[in-house]
Design a protein around this nucleic acid. Structure first.
Lengths: 190, 190
DNA sequence: AGTGGAAAGTTTCCACTGGAAAGATAGCGC
DNA sequence: GCGCTATCTTTCCAGTGGAAACTTTCCACT
């Protein structure tokens, strides 16, 4: 585990962390593999062994992201509003992951490390939508509506499009948004 | 105007179109300036004269995008639901523009060709939100709610995250989403 | 009419990138 | 204690964005 001169011992995690930081600083494509390798103190081809290529590194970021994401959503419990808040919280706290996850042209979305975790997250959203839906025929519509609002708010907030982004607490604001749009649908398990 | 051997006569527009096509094929960063220049049949430094650098080209894409965007939203008239539908329509019909516009780290958002057009679009959204808001104190919240939903749906649809994306007509679906979430607020100019 | 820029495009150059190939090192199973 | 294999290095290559210096064309103005 401790870094011998030759075998880093921990390169995979270090590269992932370096990538996450670089993404946070310059966006999902605003950095180079070689720069990360330099930061990690290894040669520029060392990461190849762990990730194959740059796309592989981004795939690993997406995979880790969807895992964390699914866990976050699952932990929010059954209350649908809190699932939406958890969605936004994840985006804000793990913004580097988030900015990769929903940009599938950057990585390999069919990778076996990615697809199951993504499905797990989708299942939480679907079940939340079902709970909120006014009638079964509109389950999907309701899911997409709530998903869109949480996702759109997160994306706008992260991109800085909301001019007052600095002043607001995104989680609190998200809760207010959801209440405004979906509060009237809430018929708590009648 | 006709292409003499030396002076292309039309390079700016041709490069913009080539960029839009490349973005559509490989995302906002999945192409090279040199490749576009080759497609246009000019040397790889010719575009410098029109755009300065690659960021300048993306800035021009964003500027054109926000212009078109503002025009589209303004043309939707006062009906708020139709503004949301127009938002989604723009994203679908001008997806290359859209994918750049909300990724400000890719271009220069403060550019004088960008900022005013963006402000124009924001004004339409704000006024729509105001019309929909249940009370003045919630004007901003309502605007952000509707904006988030339209934006989120557009982004999810474009990214392919909605598994059934192929089957649905995004504009119709957007109208249904807005009705579900905001229909109960509609108090037509009482 | 013809000339002096300015505008538009070219060639050449450089540091940097992602990746391929081949070789060095070191820890681990037996 | 020995070879195997995972990990990391060095070297190499084509492609990239951009700077610099040059060429060609067009247009405004006398």
């Amino acid at each position: 585990m401790e870094p011998s001169a030759y075998h880093h011992g921990n390169l995979r995690r270090v590269m992932l962390d370096a990538a996450l930081q670089a993404i946070g600083e310059s966006g999902p494509t605003g950095w180079s593999l070689r720069e990360l390798a330099r930061r990690a103190g290894v040669s520029h081809t060392a990461p190849t062994h762990h990730f194959g290529d740059k796309t592989g590194l981004l795939t690993a970021v997406a995979a880790e992201g969807f895992d964390l994401f699914a866990a976050t959503l699952e932990a929010a419990g059954g209350d649908f509003r809190e699932v939406g808040v958890a969605y936004v919280r994840f985006a804000v706290r793990h913004r580097s992951h988030f900015q990769v996850m929903f940009r599938p042209e950057l990585y390999r979305p069919a990778d076996p490390a990615v697809a199951p975790a993504r499905a797990r997250a989708a299942a939480v959203l679907s079940s939340g939508g079902r709970a909120l839906s006014p009638d079964p025929a509109r389950d999907r519509l309701t899911t997409v509506a709530a998903w869109s609002m949480a996702h759109g708010f997160a994306d706008l907030w992260l991109s800085g499009a909301l001019a007052d982004a600095a002043e607001i607490d995104p989680e609190t604001y998200a809760r207010d948004l959801i209440t405004l749009a979906f509060g009237h649908l809430h018929h708590p398990k009648a």
